[in-house]
Simulated scan of single mutants.
Amino acid sequence: MELKVEGISKNFKNDTSVQTVLKNLIFSVREGQFVTLLGPSGCGKTTLLTIIAGFQAASGGRILINGRQVTRPGPDRGFVFQNYALFPWMTVRDNILYPMRQRKVPAKDREKRLEELLTMAQLEGKEKLFPHQLSGGMKQRVAFIRALAGRPEVLLMDEPLGAVDMQMRQSLQDDLEALWLKDKTTVVMVTHDVDEAIYLSDRVIVMSAHEGKIVDDIYINLHRPRDRKENEYNKLKELVSEALQVATGRRADSTEAANNPYLATLGGEATTV
């Protein structure tokens, strides 16, 4: 599987002006990679994610998944929303089965996949509950495995932990990582949290406030599970924070970050587009 973002631009027009949110974005994502889009509010992260999902059209360029151009939503892409977006009238079981029914997965295979996912998310015995009967953490796990249920080629996540409090956030990051490691689906995630990006990602793409330009594309080659107290972790966190300062306009130039020797030794490959 390969996801290609080829020259994506997005303009919003009104009666008097045109606002360019994204301009000529180019990058690709390899199979099994966990890639995070990081940047200031309004930089176009979520807009780009919804274009990849097929929820809205680009003004220019194209999205390719395994060489197929994205023109609309499809079962090859799962989506996890910030507010869970579970169907409140459905039980946990029916929420998870829904995408499999949409894909016309045979009943026997649906039941087997359901059992696998409930076990993976440690939700056995919760399948008859409704969303309002679940904690925030449980809702997030249900939303995640529902997105995985139809075996999408790419999982898209828009601030998946944005709706929980800070105390729960790090615990859910561990849950999210554990679930992803078991399934190894290709992931593109949007976040505004530097620590979350470093903790979860194989790669962090930092986008600028102006036209969503790519300021840095940083590879995070740290062993899992990651230790926030490690020197290497904190040096990468500093590196990404510097790139984010460039993205917000607080620093004039990303040259220092791009030439940082820790990129080669800690981040591995890096490219600036």
Rank of each mutant, 00 (worst) to 15 (best):
E177F: 09
L97S: 03
G136W: 06
T185M: 09
L148E: 02
I96C: 10
L123Y: 03
T71R: 06
K126T: 05
Y84F: 11
L176R: 00
F81M: 04
T186L: 05
P131H: 01
F81P: 15
T119D: 15
D175V: 01
T119E: 13
P99Y: 00
E127V: 02
W180M: 02
L156D: 04
T71H: 10
V188P: 01
L123W: 00
L148C: 15
F87G: 03
L118Y: 03
E127A: 12
L161A: 11
V92F: 06
R169T: 05
L97E: 02
Y98H: 14
D158M: 04
L129I: 00
F81T: 09
G74D: 08
R101E: 09
L129V: 02
L181M: 10
K104P: 02
T119V: 15
Q102G: 04
T71A: 11
W180F: 00
S135C: 09
A143Y: 07
F87Q: 15
A147Q: 12
R169G: 10
I145W: 01
Y84G: 07
N83I: 06
L117F: 12
D165Y: 07
E111P: 09
A121K: 08
V164Q: 03
L181Y: 03
A149F: 07
E111T: 00
D158T: 07
G67L: 13
L155E: 13
R103E: 04
A107S: 08
E159H: 02
P106H: 15
V188Q: 05
A163T: 04
F87H: 13
Q102P: 07
A85K: 08
E153A: 15
Y98W: 12
V154P: 01
V164I: 14
Q102Y: 06
R141I: 13
K128M: 07
V105H: 00
L155F: 04
I145K: 12
K112M: 13
T91G: 06
K184Q: 10
S135P: 13
R169P: 08
D165I: 00
V154C: 03
V70C: 08
M90S: 01
K139H: 03
E177M: 08
A149D: 02
K108Y: 06
A107W: 04
A178K: 08
F144R: 10
M100C: 11
M90G: 03
F144G: 07
E111D: 15
E159Y: 01
M189C: 07
D76Q: 09
Q167F: 07
P131W: 01
Q82R: 01
L86S: 05
L148P: 04
V142S: 12
M120H: 11
E116D: 13
Q69S: 14
K184G: 09
W89H: 15
L148W: 03
R151E: 15
F130N: 13
Q133A: 15
V92T: 00
L114M: 11
P160I: 14
T91P: 03
L118I: 00
L118K: 13
Q133C: 12
L172W: 06
L161K: 10
T186G: 14
Q82M: 14
L156E: 11
Q167N: 12
L155Q: 01
G162Y: 02
L179S: 09
L179V: 13
K128L: 13
R93D: 05
W89N: 15
R77E: 01
Y84P: 01
K112P: 11
L179T: 10
L123M: 08
Q122P: 03
